[in-house]
């Protein structure tokens, strides 16, 4: 009896499964949409940060360019390559890998799918259909540096990074340049936390800099950077500049401003190139003049910044946007 009942259940379910599978056409390969864009993220797109920005960019590509979109969260290097291949095989026009970690897989896959363009955020690997996307933080960092140099009472300011990635270092060098323009004798302390997520390590580094006299700190350390805000809050007269996303609301009482990357706009800019056929494999660097990166001051704190400083910053910003002036884009430290 039991066996018979089981066999009935099994037969029914097999029949169901067969029906479910057989009437499914290969919808994936045969869609008629001409422009399709895909995104691989290293984490969930609900993170309100790095991945969320990329996903928002994908949605903007859909809405502005009428693209069909697909996204996937990938966890391991094996997943990266497999998903690049799958999108390539389905003839997606543009595939983003959102992080430097995607570039090895992209380099292996790109030659096999010449009709698909691959872009890795923060990557520096290039090929005929493979580009890196990097953000030029130099100009807005320079502006932040000008404010920091003008506001320091001790003559010591600090920069704290997650790890020593080239864009982070360039941003810090520009910050130092800006600070020297405002105060030629300023001393700059530099620390790297060693990761991007250890909040307490970020706090320790900031407290150490504060103990050495730093009273304005520019941080670029994602989640670990939250510790820098904590350290500033528990010390008197210490200000912070944030990076990457608008962090002015994280600690409105100590944050002067943030160097903000507009990820959605950057993604849209790249997708537009691909759609227009002007895309070339290279390191795409998007900065202030592309409307992708900007210094956003914290409205709650602008009253603390002396008016002449703000005026100078505004005029330098205008020069930068006109192309009349630019922070030196370099990895080398500034000569004192």
């Amino acid at each position: 009896m039991n066996k018979r009942r089981f066999s009935i259940i099994i037969n029914t379910t097999i029949a169901l499964a067969v029906v479910a599978c057989s009437d499914a056409p290969k919808s994936a390969g045969a869609a008629a949409t001409p422009f399709r864009v895909a995104l691989l993220t290293p984490g969930p797109v609900s993170d309100h940060s790095w991945n969320a920005g990329a996903y928002e960019g994908l949605l903007r590509i859909r809405d502005s360019l009428g693209a069909a979109i697909s996204n996937i969260e990938t966890k391991t290097p094996a997943d990266f390559e497999d998903n690049f291949r799958q999108y390539g095989a389905q003839a997606y026009r543009l595939v983003f890998g959102h992080g430097f970690e995607f570039q090895d897989a992209a380099r292996r896959v790109a030659p096999d799918y010449p009709n698909t363009d691959f872009v890795t955020t923060s990557g520096n690997t290039t090929g005929p259909n493979l580009a890196g996307l990097e953000f030029d933080l130099a100009n807005p960092s320079y502006l932040a540096g000008m404010i920091a140099g003008a506001m320091t009472r001790t003559g010591v300011i600090g920069v704290i990074g997650g790890t020593e990635l080239p864009p982070v270092r360039k941003s810090f060098v520009a910050f130092e340049q800006g600070a020297r323009r405002a105060n030629p004798h300023v001393r700059v302390l530099t620390s790297y936390i060693g990761n991007w997520d250890d909040v307490s390590a970020g706090r320790e580094q900031a407290l150490a800099q504060i103990a050495r006299g730093a009273d304005v700190i520019f941080q670029n350390a994602d989640a670990a950077g939250l510790g820098v805000f904590q350290a500033a809050r528990q010390s008197a007269h210490v200000y912070v500049f944030g990076s990457n996303s608008n962090q002015n609301d994280v600690a409105p009482d100590v944050t002067l401003g943030s160097v903000v990357i507009d990820l959605p706009h950057a993604f849209l800019t790249v997708a537009r190139e691909v759609k227009d056929g002007t895309f070339r494999g290279r390191v795409i660097s998007l900065g202030m003049t592309d409307d992708v990166v900007s210094l956003v001051l914290n409205p709650a704190m602008t009253s603390r910044i002396p008016a002449p400083v703000l005026t100078t910053v505004d005029s330098v910003r205008a020069q930068m946007l006109r192309g009349a002036f630019s922070a030196v884009d370099t990895l080398a430290p500034v000569a004192p």
């Binding site: 919808s27 895909a38 697909s70 996937i72 969260e73 997943d79 998903n83 799958q86 389905q90």
Partner: peptide, 8 residues
């Protein structure tokens, strides 16, 4: 993975 990729 394919389901997330191709069908959301």
């Amino acid at each position: 993975t394919a389901m997330q990729r191709d069908a959301g």
